[in-house]
Design a protein around this nucleic acid. Structure first.
Lengths: 152, 152
DNA sequence: TTTGAAATTACAACTGT
DNA sequence: ACAGTTGTAATTTCAAA
């Protein structure tokens, strides 16, 4: 994991369709060498997968909400219950008064309310505190150009 | 945007490296037809880009925090100030008591604290309320298999 | 790093609805 | 006109020297 690897990651985050020859040129390497580096990053799990970025509004996810879920019980094993709600894009166990923070995308605020209803059906959930996003400044991939602390 | 398009989106979210022949087979179309549909989804902006999913922990982003940023002024034009902090992965203007919700990834909690310091340097920011994620249940792409409301 | 074969993409012209 | 099929040339991938 040196500076070249991080540059490759940043370039692929921007556009994963570009050819290895272009990647190699950008970092001063041959296409084969760039290819080999990317293969190793994949094997090491640094690159989890190649995917597409879909416009949420185009697939019925124009309303973005965050919900603080309060609980009266240990929620550490409840991940599957949250994952069963497709509108939930992320779910994190958090420190603090609430127990779980979820990120929700729906087409309408009515559907967001319905997600709250389904959240209450999960055992241990004792309350929710929902916030609607009025505007998204940005959503971007993890920054890779930073002093590294862990990893190979 | 019919059912086949949504299936193609879901397949590409899972693995954007697969060949059009495989995509076509999965939806009962020829490789050329699948290619044409994906091209149109790209042109329409439904597919914003092809990218890689990088493991945050491998690039110094093992600590995940959410920060509610309170403000004493209109924050609608401050997006650039937040974007200038690379550790911030997302920033949303929200309804409610706080003004902006940001998602932050750092290597350590000390670095998270330093992000808070930099947030206070943004004009109008009057307070922050940070929460650390103890565990991430899941983070996944937007669900595409849903009744569509907008779009072509 | 370079090479070369295999696979894939991108782009035709064509067909049917 | 529109969406899909088939065929083909140009790239690209990927393993091996």
């Amino acid at each position: 994991m040196d500076a070249i690897d991080r540059t490759l990651l940043a370039l692929l985050q921007e556009d994963a369709t570009q050819a290895y020859s272009a990647l190699g040129k950008a970092v001063g390497l041959s296409a084969g060498a760039a290819h080999e580096r990317v293969r190793k990053l994949r094997d090491a799990g640094v690159i989890r997968r190649t995917t597409i970025d879909v416009d949420p509004a185009a697939v019925g996810g124009g309303v973005l909400g965050f919900v603080m879920v309060e609980s009266s019980a240990w929620m550490g094993e409840s991940g599957g219950r949250f994952a069963a709600i497709p509108e939930i894009q992320e779910a994190h166990v958090i420190a603090g008064s609430a127990s779980v923070l979820v990120k929700v995308r729906t087409a309408t605020t009515e559907q967001l309310q319905d997600v709250l209803r389904r959240l209450y059906e999960i055992e241990g959930v004792s309350g929710t505190q929902a916030t609607v996003a009025l505007e998204t400044f940005f959503e971007r991939p993890v920054a890779v150009n930073r002093v590294n602390t862990s990893a190979t």
